[in-house]
Design a protein around this nucleic acid. Structure first.
Lengths: 153, 153
DNA sequence: TGATAACAGTAAGTATGCTAACCATTTGCT
DNA sequence: AGCAAATGGTTAGCATACTTACTGTTATCA
């Protein structure tokens, strides 16, 4: 009898829960209030200034509606600016504000550092192997997700 | 420069996203409308009739508030019954209804079967190793989570 | 050119998954 | 017994993370 506790789906959820909890703790310790998706959005906009919301959603694998809400909140925090695209009046182009860039400069090392703490209880070797398989299966299952990763051509 | 796409936290979220998507697809194909946490709650109540909400929350590693809402919806669907505990008037004891039991009889094999599809792109050997490490790290990180797994003594 | 399909964004609605605060009840301790 | 602490549940509030449906704009192609 396969118990809930041994099912891959349940274990993945648990690990995700641990991951987001560690993220929240470390970011709060650093004195900031940013969620994982907000960080992902800011990092992607910083690397792709002028990106529109739909492309951003594809790059970080979220649906457009969720990203619309995330961008709302980042705009309210004055971390980014949103403007109608001059090339396509449907689209909104995004840019980090100076405050957004300053926050990323502070937060990026914090977030990079905490990545090492979200896979506890494994040896370095095991961690490497786990990450290899994790990347492999996430890539293989991409199209199964509701909001697949979509890189612009 | 560690990109978002290579960070463990992001990859774990992606896999979780794939996992919940596969779950929703398979359950919908079977003609039902049950979420992962609803299934976990029903399975745990079935195995522990008369369990109270707080203990249930601990067994499936959710906070009490979330489980309160999940139980609300399962009660509204007539899949379980909630009653004041005769031994502790604070607590609510939970039991599956006949409909709840019938649903579990149908759904359990579906959910067990779909577990095999949420880790695509890996060989059988890799899958086994991945699951071993997944269980290991989820156990090691249990206390880091906001809602740790808590087994009654 | 003119219909029509595709696409960007948003509104409304639902379910998770939390925090903080609160009430009622029970437990533990003196 | 009496009282403080702990516990079970709920309310309110917030941020994901979706679905469906709609508006407005752009692209396609007959």
């Amino acid at each position: 009898m396969l118990s809930i506790h041994d099912m891959p789906g349940h274990l993945i959820r648990r690990l995700h829960q641990i991951s987001t909890s560690v993220f929240a703790d470390r970011v709060a310790e650093a004195g900031h209030d940013i969620t994982p998706v907000q960080f992902a959005a800011l990092a992607t906009i910083e690397a792709n200034p002028g990106i529109d919301q739909a492309t951003l959603a594809g790059l970080i694998a979220y649906d457009r509606v969720t990203i619309g809400g995330v961008v709302d909140r980042l705009e309210a925090k004055r971390l980014l600016e949103r403007a109608v695209s001059p090339r396509d009046r449907r689209a909104r182009v995004l840019e980090l504000t100076p405050e957004g860039k300053a926050l990323m400069a502070v937060l990026r090392p914090v977030v990079v550092a905490l990545q090492d703490d979200i896979l506890p209880g494994m040896t370095t070797k095991e961690k490497t192997e786990f990450l290899r398989l994790l990347a492999k299966t996430a890539a293989a299952g991409n199209s199964l997700s509701r909001a697949p990763l979509s890189l612009p051509e």
